[in-house]
Design a protein around this nucleic acid. Structure first.
Length: 525
RNA sequence: GGCGACGUAGCUCAGUUGGCUAGAGCAUGCGGUUCAUACCCGCAGUGUCAUGUGUUCGAAUCACAUCGUCGCUACCA
């Protein structure tokens, strides 16, 4: 029997500059979801990539004295290098300048023309001659060009348009039938009230003012414009419209499309409509995450407050960085990065709670039982039953939260289990049991500690795979049947455990003042 | 202007269908413990749950209004 499939995508990022922790967050989130679903038995596919066309790329390349292709080639190398550094397990990396993509976009454009979805018309807008760009009424600043502040002229340009109005009803119906297509829920209202309800406007899908893009097949002075080009990546990467559609047939529709809140509109309106026009099924879920903000607002070059992932990864490790990003981004609100909270989370969550729990457990197993735990002894100690039930409940909570994209909460629930386990040590006071030579009870305590840590390691694995492996290795749990997600439901299956002789700290406590200063310096540079 | 969200302990936030004396983490104070990365555990706190009115036996949770903060309001991605 075929496994159920899970297809997750990130946006294709616009390679205009180095990726900061915001882009890293999106990618880490998608990567975590892929890993989670893989552990749950799904046949997964994870797509990311770059959106390499457009006027801005052309400008940036020119400024750098490169051809656009040279520029994006370099950016693609950097992006892949970063994802490699972050152990991002994407299955495919699509670039919109690849022939496999360009061919499909051209084909789709033709098809839409033939079906009457695309027509030739006039695009009207405010044009700034020195900047060579069009602006809408609302983009103007005091009626002047928002970029250079000079006068703008009313101008017309021959353009192809996509007939959105044609699909108005169908889109409305889709949202009525799928009210939870977009998460968080309120984003749907935002889109619905602002755009759909007042009536859709046709979308301009070509430009003649620059040429760094895919040419309109039958009219090559036009370049196919951004969104029709960019959005198509999600299916062109699966081979849609190519001679081999195996992947497309297997994985489409996407199960989860992750986007930043800034590009919801395009994914919530145009993308579904394009798919309708192609007679293809719509994705099952669109998740719009928020932004990582700094104390003084959004990250920007002019503010000099950009945090690049390398700064954190190189000094504090990949898992710690990922943990922070996932833990600090609330479900429906912006998250905030500050050196202070980063160090705080590192020290208190990772070192004190998790790291120390592993360390003290290993130390006790060594001290009392020469590093051995033979097997489950039952619920001998008074808190045993409660802690077993607690673990069971937390597993359920974690699953629920992940399914609903409440990732920060799911981590919080894992940490509740960690805290409860630390408390268990105080309740059972193993050092007293040792003194009183209550071997059975003592062994049961050790078993419960090792078992809970095993569960923690599995729960944490989608988000922090290295840490997970590290915990399991130190505990001496290597057999495959005890590291699967399914094995979380077991409590009594461990046998003949031999932990490492001397625990190796998972995370080394940071000197707060020093590290806060270090990160601050890094942000400036 | 229109639409939408948020405003809960010093700080960051949980509080799915209204119901036990309103929670967690961090920070603060005190106590306990020693297996452990001066860690962990317990206790104590302070809160007019933005403000006002209403619905209800009962509201942080629903309705209306007010104040404050923020987001979206169509072709830069």
């Amino acid at each position: 029997m075929d496994k159920k499939t899970f297809y997750v995508t990130t946006p294709i990022y616009y390679p205009s500059g180095r990726f900061h922790i915001g882009t890293a967050y999106t990618t880490v989130l998608a990567d975590s979801m892929k890993r989670y679903k893989a552990m749950r038995g799904y046949d997964t596919r994870f797509l990311t990539g770059l959106d390499e066309h457009g006027q801005k790329i052309q400008e940036i390349a020119t400024k750098r004295g490169l051809t656009p292709q040279e520029h994006v080639d370099e950016m693609a190398r950097d992006a892949k290098k970063l994802w490699e550094k972050m152990h991002i397990e994407y299955d495919d990396f699509i670039r919109t300048t690849e022939p496999r993509h360009e061919k499909v976009v051209a084909k789709i454009f033709d098809k839409m023309m033939d079906n009457g979805d695309i027509y030739l018309g006039m695009y009207e807008g405010w044009y700034c001659t020195p900047c060579e760009s069009f602006f809408t009424e609302t983009q103007l600043v005091d009626g002047k060009c928002p970029d250079c502040g000079r006068e703008v002229k009313r101008m017309q340009e021959e353009s192809y348009f996509f007939n959105m109005k044609k699909y108005q009803k169908k889109l409305e119906k889709f949202y009525e039938e799928n009210p939870d297509f977009i998460l968080p829920e309120f984003r749907k209202n935002e889109i619905f009230n602002n755009f759909i309800k007042p009536g859709l406007e046709d979308l301009c899908v070509s430009r003649t003012s620059f040429d760094w893009g895919i040419k309109v097949p039958k009219n090559p002075k036009h370049v196919i414009y951004v969104w029709l080009d960019a959005l198509t990546n999600y299916i062109s990467a699966l081979g849609y419209g190519s001679e081999d559609e195996t992947l497309f047939k297997k994985y489409w529709p996407a199960d989860l499309q992750i986007v930043g809140k800034d590009i919801i509109r395009f994914h919530a309106i145009y993308w579904p409509i394009f798919l309708m026009a192609l007679n293809l099924p719509l994705p099952k879920r669109l998740f719009a995450h928020n932004f990582i903000m700094m104390k003084d607002g959004k990250m920007s070059k002019s503010k000099g407050n950009i945090v690049y992932p390398e700064l954190l990864i190189d000094r504090y490790g990949l898992d710690a960085t990922k943990y922070f990003l996932l833990r600090e981004m609330p479900y429906a609100q912006d998250g905030e990065f500050s050196p202070e909270t980063f160090v705080e989370r590192f020290n208190s969550d990772l070192c004190n709670d998790l790291g120390n729990l592993l360390n003290r457990t290993i130390a006790m197993v060594n001290k009392y039982f020469q590093g051995k735990v033979h097997g489950y002894k039952g619920r001998i100690n008074e808190p045993d039953e409660e802690i077993e039930e607690f673990a069971r409940k937390q597993i359920y909570e974690v699953e629920e939260n992940i399914e609903n994209m409440h990732i920060a909460n799911s981590l919080a629930e894992i940490w509740n289990l960690i805290s409860r386990t630390n408390k268990y040590i105080d309740e059972t006071a193993p050092w007293v049991l040792a003194k009183e030579e209550q071997k059975e009870k003592l062994e049961s305590v050790m078993y419960h500690l090792v078992e809970n840590l095993r569960k923690v390691a599995i729960l944490v694995k989608p988000f922090m795979p290295e840490t997970s492996a590290n915990i399991l290795k130190q505990l001496g749990i290597q057999d495959e049947e005890n590291v699967t997600w399914d094995s979380l439901k077991d409590y009594d299956k461990l046998k003949n455990i031999q932990v490492i002789e001397k625990g190796i700290p998972l995370f080394l406590r940071l000197d707060a003042e020093k590290e806060i200063d270090y990160i601050k310096q890094g942000m400036k540079g």
